[in-house]
Design a binder for these strands. Sequence first.
DNA 1: AAGGGTGCTATCTTTTTTGAAAGTATCTAT
DNA 2: ATAGATACTTTCAAAAAAGATAGCACCCTT
Lengths: 120, 120
Amino acid sequence: MKIEQKQFNCPVEATLSLIGGKYKPLVLWHLKSQPLHYMELQRLIPKATPKMLSGQLHDLEDCGMINREVIPEKPPKTIYSLTAFGKSIIPVLNAMCDWGTSYLDGLDIQPVCCPSQSKK
Amino acid sequence: MKIEQKQFNCPVEATLSLIGGKYKPLVLWHLKSQPLHYMELQRLIPKATPKMLSGQLHDLEDCGMINREVIPEKPPKTIYSLTAFGKSIIPVLNAMCDWGTSYLDGLDIQPVCCPSQSKK
DNA sequence: AAGGGTGCTATCTTTTTTGAAAGTATCTAT
DNA sequence: ATAGATACTTTCAAAAAAGATAGCACCCTT
């Protein structure tokens, strides 16, 4: 279903409908610092199956948050990067990261990756 | 599954695991300004079925974000309110709301409710 | 020519989430 | 006595999301 046809009771819901997918925040998070190839993302997010990862990448591309560019090398590679629109959501990711970090701190849980990446 | 047993690759995921439910941001959003009765929430969120709404309220109560208090009136009422922990997530909701608002503005979509509630 | 790397897609199954509809218990107003 | 309000729960069904597994097409190296 296209976003234009959805009804939102709250802008928060619109935000979640774009970045609420299981691995989407993680993909955006990794792309925040630099563009990455498909296999690099796959290695950074090993729990995502290829189907899941490519599905999430398609969704993010369809909603204009990431660019997908094929580089015709010997084995052709694909590079994913944030668009300007994708970059615009970084403050939201930072807010979620900050809150999540202090929450996990209180539980004595360390996230597997992303150590305090919200600092600029 | 309890949150303590989950593994997060990113604090953002921890945040989403608590507030990512379909109506949870909306519930928190409504409770941000004042405590509400069950039926008030039901009227504010008509798309949620009773099962869904009470499920989301249970989840939020279980994770310590909202208080549930039964008031023994003639027809007994229940009042829901944010805990201190629940209030701590308001900045995240505000960031999501701000981003969602400008995103929907660009699409010429007006959310059904919550007009610019992120301002204090 | 056989195996490995890249970047996926296709199928099928399972799990999770959501929804629709009805039921329940108590009290009050008509 | 009947109907309505409050605050849910229960049961069954449907839909959506996620996972497992396999396959493919291309090129390169050995």
